[in-house]
Amino acid sequence: MPLFRNARFEISIARPQDLPPPSGAEIAFAGRSNAGKSSAINTLVGHVRLAFVSKTPGRTQLINIFRMTNGAALVDLPGYGYAKVPEAIRKQWVKLLENYLSRRESLIGLILIMDSRHPLTPLDRQMLDWYAPTGRPIHVLLTKADKLTRSEQARTLAVVRRDLKAGWGDQVTVQLFSSLKKTGVEEAEAIVGSWLVPPSTDETEAVAN
């Protein structure tokens, strides 16, 4: 069975103190409010409306947790960077993001959603700079790839990969993704699947030595 399929909604959180006790590994999804994060989650899990897709960017104001059949969870974080959000709500989002991403012990990696037509915005770079020191892996989904020609896709992927390598080394990986065409799902599953598999005893000993 595909890794993400049959994930189910578990809980929505408005305050850091309301987060449930850790129960299995967690993979966070973050990105600008209009980058297609909810659509990407729905495509990965094969469910049209598991994560709410709004025509108004910035609508998601909560941390939404979806539990997968293997016990791990997909954690949909509030989108960032939408200018029309009231300042009080923006501060609440920042507090939620900072608390979860920096303190959640069960968090094993971050999926960062970027619009392939406008990748690596200043806020995306700020998120990478802020999260990378945790040492946990980051995988970038360049969404809406169907809106680019094949040559534009190849060029965008090459440029973003080069910039990520220069700024954050091997900690960050990247791929093209399209919710409309349902492309990139298997690649994303392979990446997250590797996060969920602990290193073998031999590998661990080799690193220790």
Rank of each mutant, 00 (worst) to 15 (best):
Q171A: 13
D146H: 00
G81S: 03
V197M: 14
K165G: 13
G71S: 14
K181R: 14
N64C: 05
N209W: 14
G193L: 03
T121S: 14
S38Q: 07
S39D: 11
L96Y: 05
K55E: 10
V85M: 07
N99Y: 11
T134V: 00
N34P: 09
D163K: 12
D124L: 04
L44F: 06
G24D: 08
F29Q: 02
T60Q: 01
G193I: 06
L77E: 05
N70R: 14
V45C: 06
D129W: 11
G193R: 07
N99E: 11
V140F: 09
V53H: 13
M114L: 09
V53M: 01
E203I: 14
P57H: 00
S178M: 06
V45A: 11
V207G: 05
P21S: 07
Q153C: 13
R162W: 12
K91Q: 06
L196Y: 11
R59E: 11
S39I: 14
L128R: 03
R136T: 09
R104N: 10
P122I: 06
I138P: 01
K182E: 15
W168K: 05
R32I: 05
P2C: 03
I89F: 05
E152V: 09
F52V: 06
N64G: 04
V174T: 15
S54I: 10
D124G: 00
G184E: 04
L164V: 10
A188V: 14
I27Q: 00
L128A: 04
A14N: 07
Q17W: 10
K37L: 01
S178Y: 08
I108L: 01
T201P: 08
P133M: 08
V140A: 05
V172L: 00
T121Y: 04
D163N: 10
M127Y: 13
L19H: 10
